[in-house]
Amino acid sequence: MTEYKLVVVGAGGVGKSALTIQLIQNHFVDEYDPTIEDSYRKQVVIDGETCLLDILDTAGQEEYSAMRDQYMRTGEGFLCVFAINNTKSFEDIHHYREQIKRVKDSEDVPMVLVGNKCDLPSRTVDTKQAQDLARSYGIPFIETSAKTRQGVDDAFYTLVREIRKHKEKMSKDGKKKKKKSKTKCVIM
């Protein structure tokens, strides 16, 4: 069974824990209790493949930012979460993405942009803004509501699919490099 290491990042209060708990335990946590770091595991079937999701729910508070490099190193894919009623959390996505790329030393890291709290009427981040940002990053965008469960499975499952595509691409690139290195030079 394939294991996928997913990391949920975003500013404090955007609903990272609520999304994760909704996926794992099928219930909505409405009281806000700032996370330092929590880890969850769940076995699911995605596109006919049974897999184990190892999900790291991270601290959004700035005082825990020193811990970010460590979990970013171990993560295979990242859910970059903002709240649709919090423009600052949307603007912060850029910083999370840049930090992930720096730590992973790669421009090509599996990510999904997630606009959470889409059940709320007080939207300050337009869907088109988020779609445009995701398009500019070359990553999928999904709106979710941890409260109603809308888009929750889709967000995590899409990230797994992005990781699969990335692994497939990397193995193809690896095979191309191996083929090239088999060419021999004969000096007579």
Rank of each mutant, 00 (worst) to 15 (best):
G77A: 14
R73S: 11
L79D: 00
S106I: 13
F78N: 01
M111I: 10
F82Q: 03
F90R: 10
L120F: 10
G77S: 04
S65L: 05
D108Y: 07
Y71S: 14
M72P: 12
T124K: 10
K104V: 11
V114F: 01
V112M: 04
V112N: 00
Y71P: 14
M72Q: 07
Y71I: 05
L79K: 00
F90V: 13
S65T: 09
D105T: 05
N116A: 15
C80D: 01
K104C: 12
V109S: 03
C118G: 11
F82S: 14
K101R: 12
E107Q: 11
G115H: 06
M72R: 08
E91G: 06
S122A: 12
R68Y: 02
A83Y: 00
T74A: 13
P121C: 08
I84D: 15
A83E: 15
T124M: 11
S106C: 14
S106W: 12
E107T: 11
T124A: 13
R123L: 11
L79R: 00
L79P: 02
I84G: 15
R68G: 08
S106H: 08
M67F: 15
R68P: 03
V112K: 00
E98F: 00
V112P: 00
E76K: 05
S65K: 08
S106F: 10
D105L: 06
I84M: 15
K117D: 11
Y71R: 14
F78W: 04
I100W: 08
M111N: 00
M111V: 06
A66N: 11
R97Y: 15
T74I: 07
E98M: 03
S65Y: 08
V114M: 07
I84K: 13
K104N: 14
G115S: 08
E98A: 06
C80F: 14
S89G: 08
R102C: 07
F78C: 02
K88G: 11
C118M: 11
V81G: 03
I100A: 03
I100S: 02
D119F: 01
A66V: 10
M111E: 00
K104T: 15
E107H: 09
G115E: 05
V103Y: 06
V125R: 10
I100G: 01
K117E: 13
E76V: 15
K117G: 15
Y71G: 15
K101P: 02
C118R: 06
V109F: 11
K104P: 04
T124I: 09
N86H: 05
S106G: 13
F78Y: 10
K88V: 07
M72A: 06
E63I: 02
E63P: 04
P121S: 12
Y64C: 03
L113T: 03
V125I: 10
L79N: 00
R73C: 10
A66G: 14
N116S: 13
S106R: 09
T74K: 15
P110H: 03
V114T: 02
L113Y: 07
V114H: 00
S122E: 13
G75T: 05
T74C: 09
R73F: 06
D69P: 10
D119Y: 02
M67H: 06
S106K: 07
G75N: 07
V81Y: 01
N116I: 05
E107N: 11
D126T: 09
K117L: 15
R73T: 13
C80M: 12
A83V: 03
M67V: 05
C80I: 13
A66S: 13
Y71D: 12
E63A: 03
D92A: 14
L79A: 04
G115T: 08
D69T: 09
M72C: 05
E63R: 03
M111R: 01
V114N: 01
I84H: 15
D108S: 08
D108V: 07
E63L: 02
V114W: 01
R68H: 04
M67G: 09
V112L: 06
G75K: 02
C118F: 09
R68S: 07
P110S: 02
E63S: 03
K101G: 08
E107I: 10
M72N: 04
C80T: 03
D119G: 09
S65G: 09
K88Q: 13
R73Y: 09
G77W: 02
F78P: 00
V109M: 07
F78L: 03
Y71M: 06
L113R: 01
V109A: 05
D119W: 02
F78I: 06
D69M: 04
Y64E: 01
D126M: 08
V81F: 08
P121H: 10
C118Y: 08
E98Y: 00
R73D: 09
V125G: 13
D108G: 06
D105G: 15
H95S: 05
Y71H: 15
D119Q: 04
T124W: 09
G115N: 04
M67A: 04
S122G: 14
V125M: 12
P121E: 14
V103C: 07
I100F: 06
M72K: 13
S65V: 08
N86F: 01
N86I: 03
K117F: 15
G77D: 00
D108F: 07
S106V: 11
E63F: 02
D69E: 12
L120P: 09
Q70G: 11
R73A: 12
V125E: 14
V81N: 04
A83N: 15
N116R: 01
M72V: 04
T124P: 12
D69Y: 04
V114K: 00
V112G: 01
C118H: 07
I100H: 02
S122H: 09
C118W: 08
L113C: 07
R73V: 07
F78R: 01
R97E: 10
I84P: 15
V81T: 08
L79I: 14
Y64R: 02
S65C: 08
K101S: 08
N116P: 01
E98C: 03
A66T: 10
R97V: 15
A83K: 05
D108L: 05
D126S: 10
V81W: 00
K101L: 08
K101I: 07
V112Y: 02
A83F: 00
S106M: 13
T124H: 11
C118Q: 07
F82M: 14
F78E: 00
S106A: 10
G75S: 06
S122L: 08
N86C: 05
M67Q: 05
G115I: 13
K104S: 12
V112H: 00
E76I: 13
A83T: 08
L120E: 14
G115R: 04
G115K: 03
F82L: 10
K104I: 09
L113Q: 00
M72Y: 04
E76Y: 12
P121I: 09
R68N: 05
N86V: 03
V81C: 08
D119S: 05
T124Y: 10
F82Y: 10
L79H: 01
G75P: 04
L79F: 04
Q99N: 04
G75Q: 05
G75H: 06
M111W: 06
A83I: 01
D69K: 06
P110C: 03
E76D: 15
N116Y: 01
M111H: 00
Q70D: 10
D69L: 02
A83D: 15
V112F: 04
E76G: 05
Y96L: 15
D69W: 02
K117S: 14
I84N: 14
S106Q: 08
K104E: 06
R68T: 04
P110E: 01
S122T: 11
P110N: 02
P110M: 02
D108M: 06
V112C: 03
D126K: 07
T74M: 07
V109Y: 05
I84L: 15
R102E: 05
Y96E: 02
Q99G: 04
A83M: 04
P121W: 09
I100Y: 02
I84C: 15
G77P: 00
